[in-house]
């Protein structure tokens, strides 16, 4: 567990507070704009920024696709950007960055969410599953197989989110009818228009399981 949950809340602040004060008081950074010579060279080397950068970051431990990760992130970094830009897990897609398309859908503790609206720090201690963690080695998840079989995609960009949603949908038990599947898959936009094939793929997997 992160020390941020172990210690009283007030103690979690000082690091970021001092980093902020550092800039607010503007000791170095605002000075460099007017200072020649050594200070300017120091600024060019960006030592101050590098130090500040580290101060600014918060350690987060989380499990992604079964593997533990200890990372340091800025508080403003989203789970999606952590996955894509820091962990190299680009299977989760950014289509809007505002919870308006569903391309970034992942499971957090087994529940589907929009990772673009979830700050990475809030996921400390959580279990995240992305599209990369769905297959069992070389064996695809039945939903992945069904998406291929029913051609549930074209460009493929919304596909990771669609499949993560579809897998969650089965667990949620929202597969009583094509209409219910459609309604509860409506948080995942597909601009290529593969919706009817997506519904067929989900029905197929549901029938396999029942």
């Amino acid at each position: 567990m992160s020390r941020y949950t172990d210690k009283p809340a007030e103690q979690s602040g000082p690091q970021s507070e001092s980093r902020r004060d550092f800039f607010k008081k503007g000791s170095l950074l605002s000075a460099i704009a007017f200072s020649p010579g050594a200070v300017l060279r120091a600024a060019e080397n960006k030592w101050d920024e590098k130090i500040a950068d580290e101060w600014e970051k918060i350690p987060v431990s989380l499990t992604v696709n079964g593997a533990p990760y200890q990372v340091k992130v800025e508080a403003r970094t989203t789970l999606l950007d952590l996955l894509r830009e820091q962990l190299g897990l680009t299977g989760s897609k950014k289509g809007c960055d505002r919870g308006q398309c569903g391309a970034c859908t992942v499971h957090v503790d087994g529940v589907r969410v929009n990772s673009c609206l979830s700050l990475a720090v809030t996921n400390d201690g959580k279990k995240v599953t992305t599209i990369e963690g769905l297959a069992d080695g070389e064996n695809l998840h039945p939903m992945q197989e069904a998406f291929i079989r029913h051609d549930g995609f074209q460009c493929g960009y919304c596909t990771s989110g669609q499949i993560m949603s579809a897998v969650a949908l089965l667990k949620e038990g929202r597969t009583a009818s094509p209409e219910q599947i459609s309604e509860f898959m409506s948080g995942n936009i597909c601009r290529c228009g593969a919706y009817s094939n997506i519904v067929k793929a989900i029905q197929d997997v549901k029938n396999q399981l029942s």
């Binding site: 809340a9 979690s12 970021s16 508080a75 720090v121």
Partner: peptide, 17 residues
């Protein structure tokens, strides 16, 4: 914009911070 992040574990603490 960067911001300070805090994660209190009880309600009075949350209200206080």
């Amino acid at each position: 914009k960067p911001f300070q992040y805090m994660r209190p574990t009880d309600t009075p603490a949350a209200i206080r911070v």
